[in-house]
């Protein structure tokens, strides 16, 4: 099938211009597949136009990530952002920390890969690693418990 694309950037620009020259503030276009709202935004000198699209159909299914509940336990190092948790800098390398290791606030305890970027996770306080809570390669939510200190 040839893809069915409703309106090009030029079409939307044209609609916005027609709206700007009319006395109306908003144009609402609804079909079975989508709804497009072209509206004036701001007022006076800051006048402009926006486009807002809504598409028919089900919202995408989102994979359940571990630890959706944020943790408030001060002994637990929580993931600063959602992503994939890694124990070591690369496959086969020794882990950043193991149970019994002493850490300082600056010690890297793991990496969370999000959107292809490696984000080091710091201990945040001094202590001793009591447990590594998230599995290597686990998908973790923001706030998910990663490491417990004692």
């Amino acid at each position: 099938m040839i893809p069915d694309l409703p309106l090009t950037a030029e079409d939307v620009a044209e609609i916005a211009e027609i709206l700007a020259q009319s006395g109306y503030r908003e144009l609402d276009l609804a079909t079975r597949r989508f709804r497009l709202r072209v509206a004036r935004a701001g007022d006076g000198s800051a006048e402009g136009t926006t486009q807002e699209w809504q598409w028919a159909g089900d919202a995408p299914a989102v994979a359940e990530a571990a630890g959706a509940e944020a943790v408030a336990d001060p002994d637990v190092i929580a993931s600063p952002l959602p992503g994939t948790f890694y124990h070591a800098p690369q496959p086969g390398a020794p882990p950043f920390v193991a149970v019994g290791d002493a850490v300082t606030a600056d010690t890297v305890v793991g990496i969370v890969e999000t959107m292809k970027l490696m984000n080091p996770v710091h201990a945040g306080r001094a202590g001793t690693v009591a447990a590594v809570l998230a599995a290597n390669g686990a998908l973790v939510a923001k706030g998910a418990p990663l490491v417990r200190l004692s």
Partner: peptide, 20 residues
């Protein structure tokens, strides 16, 4: 910091000389 999630509302600019 990357911030994945759900966009509740996306109002993009529109008008002459604008492409999104």
């Amino acid at each position: 910091r990357p911030a994945p999630g759900t966009v509740r509302r996306a109002a993009w600019p529109a008008g002459p000389g604008i492409r999104v």
